[in-house]
């Protein structure tokens, strides 16, 4: 999952980037509204965290511009102002949730996961597709209630595929969402990880969770359970 953070306070931004990376996210960080707008436009982002008090382009404006350009990914506001007027304005401009400073990282993470889940069209906290279940909160994966041990990167690929279960996701998209910018993008690596995932989830080759569509990409093929009607949009 690729997350954009737009926060002008260096110490907070850097510490957030580190913590989000530790939590398995691919993180882009911008220090002002202008940079944030550029990243938000150009990068394939799954979620944006935007501080309202930004230099150059104010947070509220940034959110409006992104929504005007039909960027549909969830946006979470960070705000130091506790007034309802600010929160309402932010949510009306197109944000989906807010977290007031100073926040506990766990709370931010929980809100982010809820937003990501909803944006993928999931109503329940645990993503279930046939016998496969993934809990983003604990990062636990089970098949037929048997826990499956995955490496961090394997988990991230599976999480992304399951989030958008049923959709075709190209290799390029997977690389973009999962690798940091400066990472050497070798699409063969993805193939290697997909192969490993298949073996771990489906050792008997019976449920066939991940489909390969030649020349187009991959698809998590198992039927969703407990999905909500539609994805979150603004």
């Amino acid at each position: 999952m690729r997350v954009l953070i737009v926060e002008d306070e260096t110490a907070l931004r850097e510490s957030l980037v580190q913590q989000l990376k530790d939590a398995g996210f691919n993180v882009d960080a911008a220090a002002d509204g202008e940079e944030g707008l550029y990243f938000g436009r150009e990068y394939a982002i799954d979620l944006a965290i935007i501080d309202l008090g930004l230099p150059k382009v104010p947070g509220l404006e940034l959110i409006k511009k992104l929504r005007e350009e039909r960027k549909a990914y969830p946006i979470l506001i960070l705000t130091a102002r506790d007034r309802w007027q600010d929160k309402v304005e932010g949510l009306q401009a197109g944000a989906d949730d807010y977290v007031a400073k100073p926040f506990h990282f766990e709370e931010l993470l929980a809100r982010m996961q809820a937003l990501l889940r909803r944006s993928g069209g999931w109503a329940q906290p645990v993503l279930r597709c046939g016998p496969v279940a993934l809990d983003p909160r604990t990062q636990e994966v089970t098949v037929n209630d048997q826990k499956v041990e995955l490496t961090s990167f394997e988990y991230r690929i599976l999480e992304y595929l399951m989030h958008r279960a049923g959709e075709v996701i190209s290799k390029t998209e997977l690389t973009e969402r999962l690798y940091a910018q400066d990472f050497d993008r070798d699409s063969n690596t993805i193939e290697v990880f997909i192969g490993r995932l298949r073996r771990k989830l489906d050792p008997g080759d019976t449920i066939k969770p991940i489909e390969t569509l030649r020349g187009r990409g991959y698809r998590f093929a198992l039927e969703r359970e407990g999905a909500s009607a539609g994805a979150v949009d603004s």
């Binding site: 306070e9 110490a11 907070l12 510490s15 957030l16 913590q19 960070l78 130091a80 007031a100 400073k101 100073p102 926040f103 506990h104 990282f105």
Partner: peptide, 10 residues
């Protein structure tokens, strides 16, 4: 005031 608090908490 709150941004430093947020940093501290982080």
């Amino acid at each position: 005031l709150k941004t430093p608090l947020a940093v501290m908490r982080n």
